[in-house]
Design a binder for these strands. Structure first.
Lengths: 296, 296
DNA sequence: GGCGGTTACGTAAGGCGTAAGAATT
DNA sequence: AATTCTTACGCCTTACGTAACCGCC
């Protein structure tokens, strides 16, 4: 098989159509260049050049091989550059898991900033619940998770990206909606409520239960996502306690009122990543995450 | 810069994730393989592998470089193959010049057979008059010409591809058309005639003049191509002497009658090529030309 | 005779294999 | 102790440069 040096030698000769000038360009003397070209032709079993009294010409095969060689050398030059860029995290792949709510709040801004900071980094988005995200971060199939607390201490680093209060979603024709003021937990005691699933949305369920005393009879439906709640509220199936940001998107037939007793940082969304990740693209993204962090 | 051998070594290690097995695959011992990989990493300035107690893993940069290396090696393998195919004339470019009449007769069959014989050969077609074709063959910008005699003896080889008689094109409402029989030259003595240009179609002009006694007063127009003649005949500008094959394509308003005195091989179309051409694609095409040849 | 490519020969660099070493399980 | 990668050393291949050579305008 031929070598890259032979390819470079051939390209030089083919472009100069003159061995001595080509040798000069390659910073070598002319005889070894001749030998290399001969060797190249021998290993290929193809005549690339027509030696004539007045310099050299390319055969048809030489023309074809010249094109191939140029492409080959270009690739040989660019491959190390790419490898270095990947190592520096300038290009690469970032697999981001996120909850469905995250896509309505910080996700857009996060992607914008990552793209600003490291334009070559491709992002793969996967909507997944918190527990799956932790799994992904642990087994290396995910680089960043946008998930709910608690953050497992081991091998997972995190910053809080979003702190918000809880709000109450009620139908437009509900008395509380007409009143238009913040709602107190006591006013929800007897309301039909749509609740979070204990398996799929434990974080929210715990959060709501810690504030309200929810009785089984109140609960009309059990769902896994805040958005589903809003659609059910619109359909008249009851009221729901949701993160405040879910109210930013006005949904027809639904009025969102703040919940008086909810601390402003009741609901948290954290960015998490494996502290042991060796994905350089993650390293480029970390400054972005820290910029977006809010104090918890 | 790295070498192709280093690329091969890296691919082997990256695929085996084990130096000893990779070395075996490369038919070498393990220590020099280690050194080559180290050297590769040093020249790239990039860590490609994570050496761990239980074998090796790829870094993100390593993954990227692996992909590049595979493509690089594939190209390095295919380039010589391409060069050999070009040399053998299996692939390549054939520049064929042809007269406009050739495209109505042998050209289609010729292209079909070339494509059968050498499917990798790309054909570039250029309509040009005979004299331009000879120039092209001589200065190397054309590989094959489909042109009219005479064939210059020097450096041009040829085979006759088509021998045909002359015919007479007359308007449908002409008395000769109504009669529907072969025409004699004497019957054309006083007919208005469309003639060939002496500069652009000398071959045809000479041919016609050698058979007919054309007087200047007869000539209504002077044109360079037989097809133009047919359109002028249709428009009622006179009659014309054309190659018989031009009558194969029935043109509305025109009747083509054979010319009694014309020998069956009066009009000749030859394939010509430079005997000094070094285009391998031409060599693949020559058997095809010989197959299509007719005896003159 | 000069221009342009090839052949001959001595030197130096670099790769390979064997053997020994270091680290982890 | 075994596995797996790295380091040390001697040999040999091979590429380079200088010098001499061949063919053609």
């Amino acid at each position: 098989m031929f070598t890259l040096d032979q390819a470079r030698a051939f390209v030089a000769v083919a472009e100069e159509l003159h061995f001595s000038r080509a040798a000069e360009r390659l910073h070598m003397t002319q005889p070894p260049l001749s030998r290399q070209i001969q060797k190249l032709e021998a290993t290929l079993g193809v005549h690339l050049l027509l030696r004539e009294s007045r310099g050299v010409r390319l055969t048809a095969a030489g023309e074809a091989f010249l094109i191939e060689c140029r492409q080959l050398l270009e690739k040989a030059e660019s491959a190390p550059v790419r490898a270095r860029l990947v190592e520096q995290g300038k290009i690469g792949l970032l697999r981001i898991g996120h909850t469905s709510m995250a896509s309505f709040s910080v996700l857009g801004e996060l992607l914008r900033r990552i793209n600003e900071e490291a334009p070559g980094v491709k992002v793969e988005l996967r909507e997944m619940v918190t527990s799956r995200q932790i799994e992904g971060l642990t087994d290396g199939t995910l680089d960043i998770g946008l998930a709910r607390p608690p953050v497992p201490e081991e091998f997972i680093d995190s910053v809080p990206l979003l702190l918000e209060g809880l709000a109450v979603a009620v139908a437009d024709d509900h008395p509380l909606a007409r009143r238009g003021e913040a709602v107190s937990v006591d006013e929800l005691r007897t309301e039909p409520l749509i609740m979070y699933s204990i398996t799929e949305a434990q974080y929210f369920r715990d959060l709501v239960v810690s504030l309200l005393h929810v009785s089984d009879e109140q609960v009309t439906y059990t769902v896994s996502q805040a958005l589903t709640m809003v659609t059910l509220v619109a359909a008249g199936h009851g009221s729901a306690v949701i993160p405040a940001s879910a109210g930013l998107f006005s949904f027809p037939g639904v009025t969102v009122l703040s919940l008086r007793e909810s601390p402003a940082d009741a609901v948290q969304l954290h960015a998490m990543w494996s502290s042991e990740s060796n994905n350089p693209a993650l390293r480029s993204a970390l400054p972005v995450l820290n910029t977006l962090a809010v104090s918890s």
